[in-house]
Design a protein around this nucleic acid. Structure first.
Length: 995
RNA sequence: GCUGAGGUGGCGAAAUCGGCAGACGCGCAAGGUUUAGAACCUUGUGGGGGCAACCUCUUGGGAGUUCAAAUCUCCCCCUCAGCACCA
């Protein structure tokens, strides 16, 4: 009999559907099985048909579901179409049809394809997000958000996609490109609807620690939420010549994570959109220049901002701010490296300890004041506290640096203890002259301070030195006689920066020279910037800000304090307050498009004027009463996006004209539709409502009983590309619904796994490359079973795989062989057990464990290994084969079912009522005692190299094994008559004889 | 630049509480079968050396720990993915 996969697949698909073997036993009495909600991300029907990437994800998820079903769970594996939204609409526009008509075609096409991949879908519960009975509840969720203060309208600069002609959320405009069509996103000021997802930022972040998700998705969400802790600090901006006294006390508030660096704040920066600019317009001397700058920076596209990171800005002349720490007057700039959307839109700039501020300060020649000193070297016990100055000397004529060469070859910097009361600078110069004889200087600069831990070998003591460094540039190389103390034995030497660094690095045990290396590098950097050093590479010796923690300097009473401790102390000192800031912004929910659920809101002009409305701060706005939901999307002909910032519905008088629910006067419906991601933010609940064709309501007690039984989802599998889109929104909506009292859980997916990306010949599949795999083609040619197994055999499911045509033949051969052995193979009444039995038990264990951890590739390999052995077995056991079929069933459901039924034999009438599908059969178990054979092959090593192998009975004691091993000819040869020094024995694996 | 993942035969990949590297499959080669081809079956298949038994080298590169390293530690190189002035 030939393996006719298409006939087999057709037959069983129909039978399974008829017998409803994949329909769970919802809420029926007597259902004692544990439930298992196995969910996969439903597709959006935007293109020609089901993408092979979808098929890959669905098959991988289905294998897990089938495994769970065989383990005795009542598995619910629903499927539907996410057909509302821009992607489906864009596709309809592209091929020139109406989205409504297109959706009918897509349904046919997608469901047809989905039925061919061999998944155990519960088809009765399928749903489509664009059906009114579904989007009624999408709209209801919007009204609930509104009623609970989580939906609001606000005018704000938003992301606008000129190609899709609509606004986008931050999540959908990552990297300045539209998530859908990859067009450049521009900024536009528009009034829009938002969901207050930021209210849940803390919970969204915190719960991540408790849910079992792929780590990379958790990391992506953590980064996106972007928590940082810091302080809000107010800077006074004194304004003179103002008559109104209140007006003269203006404050500029900043958010900072480093209040400990406040004494180093030498200027401030506000974002171009900051309100203070408009407010002080008259007071800004150069307001024309400022306005010009603001205009230019607004015109910059995101791409320009990313590509050209050079800092630009303009000072707000004639107004100043007061640093509250030291009452110093500091300038204020407007610069677009400060973003309005984060913190307060204004910063205190600490160029010494922030890389961006440092860059800006260099460009505008603003003072850089160090206030945190790094600790270098290694902390030791019993350290002597010292103060010291260190000098780096550069001679522009020689283009070389000076150091003292000690007798032990180590170069040292000219240095000395800083005597109390003596001016640091003078002390440094005095030491330099005494030790080197140099005296003719043209420039001297303080480089910086560090706290250096090191061991002083001369005196054999450990030290912690507050080390201040200076750079001295010579006018000439003239010298006078040196005055050295007894212990100072060294001579002046001119050397290159590179040699000096190399010298220290060679001797740099435990970081003893770290501070000198740091001083040198910063000094060379300065010398290059001043134009003295013309030889060294500016890139290599680039100066930079120190952003780490350390010990405070130049900070009045806080000097000497740990920077971490000083954060809160200084905040307190200046009357600031602690603040937790998130990067996450509110979810922009409205879209100026046609194909989506109309936002169910009504605006009444009259109520707005008189200040009436459902929400105090938003007069004139009313929700559509629940009894009137859904607000149906009208079937209009002119559905093309306008690009005016308004939806096509805004031209439909019949649609938008309505009456105010409060006062009864003429009012206008909202004409924007909601974001597609809201449709998919609750679909896992929708599948359960579909049981009653949406007659259950989310608030319904009958529904909550079903929901209690079936939610949350037990296993969710999908693509990592939705890490911060769908997967964040869906968690937020669940949290909100829980707080409103509609559901009892706050995390909808306690377990989520991201599958890998399927590529073709090493490249991402894309239409432009023409390397898109059409699943139908392969299913027609090889059958769904082969196709499924091939996809899963490529690589670990969570890594993705590379689709190469050649490999599919391997699986095709494998299933042909399974078929052959099942239909033509002879089974014995008195089967030989032995090795085959051991291997079978091993295979049951391996396949079960691998499927549980989604390592399908190695599970399939184990099945192949078993088949290879089974083919060679003489008296085959039918029971063995049928156990093998059970293991194969999740991967190749059709052929496994066919052979299972075929080999049922007399069991066919063994009292099973109805249809006894393999997919409802029990997953086999293994006997731990039968996992191992009675003997094993031991590798014998001599000095770690394998030299021989020996068959050893399972229970032979170590002593006896050694005795045998040491008698073997090959081993004796490699031992060369030496005595073993040590023998290492790893049971079942290795015996290593060390000579 | 930052973060995450990764680098193993001609290819997809196995092996990670350190214990025989390359399982399984593709491809390739030889043989069988066939009028011929396809399909199928058998055997072989990391590199170098040797008629052979066998020896030797090999997990991106370099050092280290160990009886033993793809696996642990340090340094460096490369690839992919995500983020990108987040104060």
């Amino acid at each position: 009999m030939k393996y006719n996969f298409s006939a087999i697949e057709k037959k069983w698909a129909a039978k399974w559907l008829k017998e409803k073997i994949y329909e769970p036993d919802f809420g029926k009495s007597g259902n004692k099985k544990r439930k298992f909600y196995n969910l996969m991300m439903f597709p959006y029907p935007s293109a020609e048909g089901l993408h092979v990437g979808n098929a890959y994800a669905f098959i991988g998820s289905d294998i897990y579901g089938r495994f769970k079903r065989m383990q005795g769970y009542d598995v619910f594996e629903p499927m539907g179409l996410d057909g509302f939204g821009i992607h489906s609409e864009n596709y309809a526009l592209k091929i020139g049809t109406h989205p409504l008509k297109q959706s009918e075609a897509s349904e046919k096409r997608f469901y047809g394809q989905l039925k061919n991949i061999g998944n155990g879908f519960a088809w009765d519960e399928r749903l489509e997000t664009y059906k009114p009975e579904y989007y009624k509840w999408t709209q209801w969720i919007f009204t609930e958000m509104w009623r609970n203060g989580l939906a609001y309208r606000k005018k704000q600069e938003v992301n606008w996609c000129p190609s899709c002609k609509t606004v986008l959320s931050d999540e959908q405009a990552e990297g300045g490109k539209c998530e859908r069509c990859a067009s450049e996103v521009v900024k536009k000021e528009l009034e829009q609807w938002f969901f207050r997802i930021t209210k849940y930022a803390g919970k969204l972040l915190k719960n991540l620690d408790e849910i079992d998700w792929s780590e990379k998705v958790k990391i992506a969400q953590r980064n996106w939420i972007g928590k940082s802790e810091g302080a809000l600090i107010k800077f006074k901006v004194p304004i003179s010549n103002i008559k109104n006294k209140e007006e003269s006390e203006i404050y500029l508030e900043v958010f900072t994570t480093r209040p400990d660096t406040l004494f180093g704040a030498t200027y401030m920066v506000v974002a171009p959109e900051h309100e203070i600019i408009g407010r002080l317009r008259d007071k800004i001397q150069n307001n024309k220049e400022v306005e010009n700058y603001i205009f230019k920076s607004k015109k910059k596209t995101t791409e320009e901002r990313i590509e050209n990171k050079e800092k630009t800005g303009v000072e707000l002349k004639s107004i100043k701010a007061i640093n509250p720490a030291n009452n110093e007057e500091i300038p204020i700039f407007v610069a677009d490296y400060v973003l309005m959307g984060y913190g307060t839109g204004a910063i205190m700039a600490v160029p010494a300890h922030d890389e961006r501020d440092f860059e800006f300060a260099k460009q505008f020649q603003l003072p850089v004041r160090q206030v945190v000193a790094e600790e270098t070297g290694m902390k030791r016990e019993k350290e002597e506290r010292r103060d010291g100055v260190f000098v780096i000397v550069f001679d522009p004529n020689r283009q070389k640096y000076a150091a003292g060469r000690q007798e032990n070859g180590i170069l040292r910097l000219f240095s000395g203890g800083a005597d109390t009361g003596e001016n640091m600078k003078n002390s440094a110069l005095r030491e330099l002259s005494e030790e080197s004889g140099l005296y003719d200087f043209q420039k001297m600069d303080e480089i910086g301070t560090v706290f250096a831990h090191y061991h002083n070998s001369l005196r054999n003591v450990n030290r912690i030195t507050k080390a201040v460094s200076f750079l001295v540039v010579l006018k000439s190389g003239k010298t006078k006689p040196v005055k050295l103390e007894k212990h100072e034995k060294f001579t002046l030497e001119w050397t290159t920066a590179e040699d000096m660094e190399k010298n220290w690095e060679e001797h740099n045990k435990e970081g003893d020279f770290d501070h000198w290396i740091k001083f040198l590098r910063q000094s060379v950097g300065q010398c290059i910037e001043f134009g003295f050093d013309k030889k060294n590479d500016p890139e290599r010796y680039k100066t930079s800000a120190y952003e780490g923690d350390g010990i405070l300097v130049n900070s009045e009473n806080f000097t000497g304090m740990d920077s971490e401790k000083a954060r809160w102390k200084i905040t307190e000192f200046v009357g600031g307050k602690k603040q937790t800031q998130y990067r996450l912004r509110d979810w922009l929910i409205s879209r100026q498009r046609y194909w989506g659920p109309p936002i169910p809101m009504i605006f009444c002009e009259k109520c707005s004027v008189s200040g009436n409305g459902e929400q105090k701060n938003m007069p004139g706005w009313y929700t559509v009463p629940e009894s009137e939901l859904p607000v149906k999307l009208p079937n209009i002909l002119n559905f093309r996006p306008r690009g005016t910032g308004e939806s096509p519905l805004a031209s439909e008088k019949k649609f938008y004209e309505t009456k105010c629910p409060a006062c009864g006067n003429a009012a206008r419906r909202e004409t924007d539709v909601s974001d597609t991601f809201l449709d998919s933010a609750w679909y896992y609940i929708g599948y359960l409502m579909k049981i009653s064709n949406f007659k259950f309501q989310i608030k319904d007690s009958r529904f909550s009983e079903i929901a209690r039984q079936w939610l949350p989802v037990d296993a969710y599998i999908g693509g990592a590309e939705h890490s911060v889109l769908h997967l964040l929104y869906v968690r937020f909506v669940a949290m909100a619904l829980k707080d409103f009292g509609h559901i009892s859980f706050e995390e909808p997916f306690p377990k989520f796994r991201a599958h890998g990306l399927l590529v073709k010949d090493g490249a991402k599949m894309s239409k432009s490359k023409g390397n898109v795999v059409n699943p139908d083609e392969y299913i027609n040619k090889f059958g769904a079973d082969t196709f499924r197994m091939y996809l899963m055999f490529l690589a670990p499911f969570e890594c993705g795989g590379d689709f190469r045509d050649g490999g599919i033949l391997g699986i095709s051969r494998f299933l042909e062989r399974v078929w052959k052995i099942g239909t033509q193979g002879e089974f014995s009444d008195s089967p030989a057990l032995g090795d085959t039995e051991h291997l079978l038990h091993k295979t049951v264990k391996k396949v079960g464990e691998d499927v549980e951890s989604l390592q399908y590739n190695t599970a399939i390999s184990a099945l192949m290994i078993f088949l290879n052995k089974f083919e060679k077995t003489k008296n085959r056991s039918l029971e063995h084969f049928r156990t093998f079929l059970l293991l194969l069933a999740p991967f190749a459901p059709f052929v496994a079912e066919e052979l299972w039924q075929m080999t049922l034999g007399e069991n066919k009438s063994a009292g099973f009522p109805g249809f006894n599908s393999i997919h409802k059969a029990e997953w086999p178990s293994y006997d731990a005692k039968k996992l191992e054979a009675d003997y094993f092959v031991l590798a014998i090593q001599v000095n770690g190299k394998v030299r021989d192998e020996m068959e050893v009975p399972k229970n032979m004691p170590q002593g006896e094994i050694e005795k045998h091993a040491l008698q073997r000819e090959r081993i004796l040869k490699f031992m060369e008559e030496k005595k073993p020094k040590r023998i290492i024995f790893v049971p079942g694996k290795i015996l290593n004889i060390v000579l």
